[in-house]
Amino acid sequence: MFVRIVKMSFHKEHISAFLSMFEEKKAFIKASKGCSLLELYQDKNNPEIFFTYSYWEKEEDLENYRNSDLFKNVWAKTKVFFNDRPLAWSVDKKITLI
């Protein structure tokens, strides 16, 4: 399993549209093969910055999602709201304390 972290920065006037779209699509994204968790975070100091964290079983699962019509549709609608280039990382989770 690994974690995909994506940082996105939006124009203020598009945040509500992004949140509505995310709310509409989140269950479909989470239902993608190999996705075991999907979270959305908003920066406390800069409300224009958001992060998604998604947990994937295999890199192939993430790549299949990224090549899906669902991703292409969501990404096409999302990227027009950006005020900066998005950044993404794939990381291996090492330790969890609960």
Rank of each mutant, 00 (worst) to 15 (best):
N73S: 15
P86Y: 02
D84C: 04
P86G: 10
L97Y: 09
D84Q: 14
A76E: 11
S9V: 11
L70M: 02
F10Q: 02
F22W: 14
R4L: 02
E39I: 01
K94C: 01
K94L: 06
F50E: 01
I95S: 07
T52Q: 08
K94G: 00
I98H: 13
M21R: 10
I15W: 00
V6T: 02
L70I: 04
E23N: 15
D61Y: 07
I49Y: 01
A76C: 07
L38Q: 05
L19W: 01
N83Y: 05
K30E: 14
W56N: 00
F28D: 14
E57L: 05
F2H: 02
A27Y: 07
E57D: 13
Q42L: 03
R85E: 15
T78Y: 03
V80T: 11
K79Q: 14
A76G: 08
H11Q: 12
E39V: 00
P86V: 02
D69A: 13
S32R: 05
F81T: 08
S20P: 03
L87H: 05
N45P: 04
D43L: 05
E63F: 13
S90M: 11
K30V: 02
E59F: 06
K94V: 01
F82Q: 06
H14D: 09
A88M: 13
F10A: 12
Y55F: 12
E39T: 03
N67E: 12
L19S: 07
K77L: 10
E23W: 06
V91Q: 00
A88E: 09
K12R: 10
Y41P: 03
N45M: 09
D43A: 07
W75F: 13
L37D: 08
I98S: 13
K93S: 01
W75Y: 14
D43H: 09
K94I: 05
F22C: 04
E60G: 04
N45S: 11
V80K: 04
D69G: 11
W56D: 01
M21N: 11
I15Y: 02
E39A: 07
F71G: 06
Y41E: 05
N45D: 12
S54H: 05
N64R: 15
M21L: 15
I29L: 11
H14E: 08
R4H: 12
K79C: 11
A27N: 14
